[in-house]
Amino acid sequence: MVELMTPELDTVFHALGDATRRRMLGQLADGERTVSELAAPHAMSLAAASKHIKVLEGAGLIRRDVRGRTHVCRLEPGPLAHAHEWLAWYKRFWTDRLDVLEDLLRDEDARTAARETPAKPKPDKPQEGEL
Rank of each mutant, 00 (worst) to 15 (best):
L4H: 14
L9I: 06
D10W: 03
T11S: 15
T11Y: 03
V12A: 05
V12G: 01
V12W: 00
F13Y: 15
H14S: 14
H14T: 12
A15Y: 00
G17A: 13
G17K: 05
D18F: 07
T20S: 11
T20D: 15
R22K: 07
R23D: 15
M24S: 03
Q27Y: 10
Q27I: 02
L28N: 03
L28A: 02
L28Y: 03
A29K: 07
A29R: 10
A29D: 06
D30H: 15
E32Q: 11
E32I: 01
T34M: 03
V35D: 01
V35T: 13
S36I: 05
E37N: 02
A39C: 04
A39I: 01
A40H: 07
H42M: 05
H42W: 00
A43G: 09
A43P: 02
M44E: 12
M44S: 03
M44D: 01
A47S: 12
A48C: 03
A48V: 08
A49N: 00
S50F: 05
K51E: 09
H52Q: 13
I53F: 04
V55I: 11
V55Y: 00
V55P: 01
V55W: 00
V55L: 11
L56A: 01
E57K: 13
G58P: 03
G58I: 04
A59S: 07
A59I: 00
A59R: 00
I62V: 14
R63L: 06
D65W: 01
G68D: 10
R69Q: 12
T70R: 11
H71V: 12
H71R: 14
H71K: 13
V72P: 02
C73D: 10
C73H: 01
R74Q: 14
R74M: 07
E76I: 02
E76G: 01
P79H: 09
P79V: 03
L80Y: 13
H82E: 09
H82N: 06
A83S: 08
H84F: 09
E85R: 13
W86G: 00
W86F: 14
L87H: 09
A88L: 09
A88Q: 12
A88V: 08
W89L: 07
Y90I: 04
R92S: 10
R92L: 10
D99V: 05
D99N: 15
L101K: 12
L101V: 10
E102D: 15
E102H: 15
D103C: 03
D103Q: 15
D103S: 13
L104S: 13
L105E: 12
R106D: 15
D107Y: 14
D107Q: 14
A110V: 07
A113S: 10
A113K: 13
A114N: 07
A119S: 11
P121M: 05
P121V: 05
P123I: 09
P123Q: 08
P123M: 06
D124W: 08
K125A: 15
Q127E: 14
Q127T: 06
Q127L: 12
E128L: 12
E128R: 14
G129I: 08
G129S: 08
E130C: 09
